[in-house]
Design a protein around this nucleic acid. Structure first.
Lengths: 115, 115
DNA sequence: GCGATACTTAAGCATATGCTTCAGTATCAG
DNA sequence: CTGATACTGAAGCATATGCTTAAGTATCGC
């Protein structure tokens, strides 16, 4: 549970940066090497490497070294926890709205009866 | 578009903290005053207020002052952008997997033909 | 009115984040 | 072999974050 929270922390944090989201979008088209990812970015290779480090630690991206290049790719299952957390929250809110709705219609039918 | 990115930044950042996620879960049961939210937390009221400030700035929570109390509630539409961003990414990855699948089956039928 | 309640504001502080530069090390290509 | 390429690692630095304490202000309940 503690580990679960830490995982969500890392994943939401990883997603909370426009550069990292751009990297994920680029990686959505397919695997790429660090320098390919860095080329269009307006910052140093080192900075991009650090962002990739955050993404990898969060489990959203996997990388492996081949020769002198490090290939990066999306870990498609990485976002699942995030998706599920949001889905659960929405379900909770909707249950509440349903109950509110029930109360409202009860009140309404009570008014009907008095007629 | 710039504003869109900043909005995602704020929302993902707001969600990247266990205390703030706990506040959202609590608010999922219905509106509550700041001190009610702070009571079960292991930190000062001021700290909880600051977390609520982050949540409100991000558009995930709305608050209004009634008397000396400040009531807080979920803004159910606040997460929509976040949900959609994730949905779009997943769709992108899946399109890619489909194309990969197509390539694989083309190669396979090419092998079949050679038989 | 007046003390208790519910925030509010400001300041301070330790740590984390997002960058940079610079000096490596490990491949690869000719 | 040798120079270019592709990272890697360590510092350093400005700003942001997550907290705290302390001193307000504005209701509320008796």
């Amino acid at each position: 549970m503690l580990q679960y929270q830490a995982d969500l922390d890392r994943k939401f944090h990883a997603l909370a940066d426009p550069t990292r989201r751009a990297l994920l979008e680029r990686l959505g088209d397919g695997p790429a090497a660090v320098s390919d990812l860095a080329a269009p970015m307006d910052m140093t290779l080192t900075a991009v490497m650090q962002h990739l480090g955050v993404l990898e630690d969060s489990g959203l991206v996997r990388t492996r070294k081949t020769g002198r290049r490090r290939m990066c790719e999306i870990d498609a299952f990485g976002v699942t926890v995030v998706e599920e957390w949001i889905a659960h929250r929405k379900a909770q809110w909707e249950r509440r709205f349903d109950r509110l709705g029930a109360v409202v219609s009860e009140a309404k039918s009570a008014r009907e009866k008095r007629k």
